[in-house]
Simulated scan of single mutants.
Amino acid sequence: MDHEALNAEMRGLREQLAGITDTAVAAADGLLIAADTGEGIDVDSLAALAAAGLGLSQRTAEATGRGELRRTVSYGSRGCAAVYAVGDTALLVVLGDEGLDVDRLHQETQPMLRRVDAILTDKA
């Protein structure tokens, strides 16, 4: 796996879209693969929690006949956390402040998710 390319993708997303504060890529089982975060973020816990939340959301979508899960977004009083499935084996976590345009985030992440999946599966 090309860690440099993965880190470049995460940095690029942060630079491209105002309001993103932190990003991370984790395996579906919650193990951290890479992170682009500031101080104060426990990246291992973030990866594990994101994987657990994504797994529950995927099961909920499946059990209710809503199709394949695209993403989850949790909103807090100081921003949000978006979690995207990357293929079947990984996930992308994006943390944002109150100024993050979440609709634009959803649009901007789609091509990035394909590139990250290619990096993780060595198809890049």
Score class of each variant (00 low, 15 high):
Ile33Trp: 03
Arg59Cys: 02
Tyr84Asp: 02
Ser57Ile: 00
Asp29Ile: 02
Thr23Cys: 15
Leu32Phe: 09
Thr23Ile: 05
Ala51His: 07
Ala27Leu: 14
Thr89Leu: 09
Asp36Val: 04
Ala90His: 15
Ala28Met: 12
Glu39Tyr: 04
Gly53Leu: 09
Asp103Ala: 15
Thr37Tyr: 08
Tyr75Leu: 14
Glu39Thr: 03
Asp88Lys: 15
Gly76Tyr: 13
Ala28Lys: 14
Gly40Thr: 02
Gly30Val: 04
Ile20Arg: 07
Ala81Thr: 13
Arg104Val: 15
Val94His: 05
Thr89Tyr: 11
Asp42Ala: 12
Ser45Trp: 08
Asp103Leu: 12
Ala47Asp: 03
Ala81Ile: 12
Ile20Leu: 11
Arg78Asp: 12
Gln58Ala: 15
Gly53Glu: 03
Gly65Ala: 08
Tyr84Cys: 05
Thr64Trp: 05
Ser45Ile: 07
Asp44Ala: 14
Arg66Lys: 13
Thr21Asn: 11
Ala50Lys: 01
Tyr84Ser: 05
Val86Thr: 06
Arg70Cys: 00
Ile33Glu: 00
Ser45Ala: 14
Gly55Trp: 01
Ala35Ser: 15
Asp88Val: 01
Gly53Met: 11
Arg78Asn: 13
Thr64Leu: 15
Asp29Gly: 08
Thr72Asn: 12
Gly76Lys: 08
Thr23Val: 13
Glu62Tyr: 11
Arg71Leu: 10
Ala63Phe: 13
Ala27Tyr: 13
Val43Cys: 10
